[in-house]
Design a protein around this nucleic acid. Sequence first.
DNA 1: TTCCGACAGTGGGGTCGCAAT
DNA 2: ATTGCGACCCCACTATCGGAA
Length: 513
Amino acid sequence: MKLADVAATSTSLAATSSRIAKRRLLAALLLRTAPEEVPVVARYLAGELRQRRTGLGWRSLSGMPSPAAEASLEVLAVDAAFERMAGLAGPGSAGARTAIAAELFAAATAEEQNLLRGLVAGELRQGALDSLLLDAVAEAAGIPAAAVRRAAMLAGATEPVAEAALLAGSPEAALAALEGFGLAVGRPVRPMLAASAPDVAAALAGFEGREVAVDAKLDGIRIQVHRSGDDVRVYTRSLDDITDRVPDLVEVVRRMPVQAAVLDGEAIALDASGRPRPFQETAARSATSDAEVAAAVGLTPFFFDVLHVDGTDLLDAPLTERLAVLDRIAPGSVVERVVTADVAVAEAAFAGWVAAGQEGVVVKDTAAGYEAGRRGSAWVKVKPRHTLDLVVLAVERGSGRRRGLLSNIHLGARDPDGGFVMLGKTFKGMTDEMLAWQTARFGELAVEDDGWTVRLRPEQVVEIAFDGLQRSSRYPGGLALRFARVLRYREDKTAAEADTIDTVRALAAPAGD
DNA sequence: TTCCGACAGTGGGGTCGCAAT
DNA sequence: ATTGCGACCCCACTATCGGAA
């Protein structure tokens, strides 16, 4: 298959907003794809390259040759080119990589270049990614979408499932082939995700008075651990294998009284008293492959679910049953939990854990199975929320559907000694109406424009919600907001009434930096 | 007919490792 | 030695489509 066929489909996808039409386009192309090309074409349609890391990014693509007039590229040849780039390392590799990319781009038409840029940058913007592709695979194979989804979630990947379903020959054979994608120890599944609620009462309200499990939510990194005998593998949320970087986690799981298990949990750095360290320390520890750092800062696993134990799959077992198994096999390594139907009890647990340095709670349906890859309503997270009234110092032009609008705002706290201290940026929480309003408003306040960032007279106050403060080397106050989002613009306050940097510092102090 | 679940999009800060400067 | 880039941890929120109610 020509890359041009994929590029044309991508263009058509972007041109319609109908999901049914998108599904049809995807299915049509999959049906025209040769068997050996299915893994590549499926990946490209989902907006990704097959290579996890190519070393080529958005920045490296500036200065690529102008497009070719005629389409000539074959998808397998393109995949091979990226494979060569991914294999490069050492001095001179960046130049060699750019050379391969330049050759590729020189052979690509304008439409193909668009596709390639989108794939490299991970921003295809065709309105269809992995989920819609799975639906299209189901349509092309003539089988229910649920079967394809479940297989992909358990396989931890779409391509092998697409391949099996499309090459089966008949719907019956396809369904039978997908049955083979059960949970396998040693092959990570997509983790179950949580929806969110503003507070504990709202989270419990969704369960209509039934008993729920309320887990402490730890501010670390998600881990999925597979054990088979003495072989232990540790995977991240995106199913990256990080076993080599986390020997302390491997040791804990090796000591468990089981032969085989698949566990879901969180790894976190603790201080000497067992209190959670700031997320930044857990992140630094889990990202490094430096053995000295790894030895100096310990990581501790805390599990909250179990998907398999000694030959028994627990995916479809109710949470209550899974927790009973977990408590038996992982004593001392289980996330703190209360089981209750009482809002007051849940709220007290939330307050206690937050005071102890945890991130919040996850409220769980005790009857639900483990819904791999889904962000359903069976798990609901709640975190404390802080707010500040800050001043907009500048605004950046938006892209994509925000093109032509002033989007990403720079946030500053008032400095009592004069001026403002920038604490971060945000583009979150804005409705289309707010975007239109702020585009007009900031046009009035503009004092300088470099074509991307518009500097403003510091007059507009905005109420910002955020999860906490973190150490920053980027911003002058040494502090940055974590997960900042807009709640509302405050037209009842002047910049002189905005919160001060002293208030922000006082908020940060208890965190222990 | 209305409601709501699921998806895609729009980007945020921080961290590491690596290659280039 | 420092800087820039790529990759990947953590992530919130809104608009939209289309099936469910």
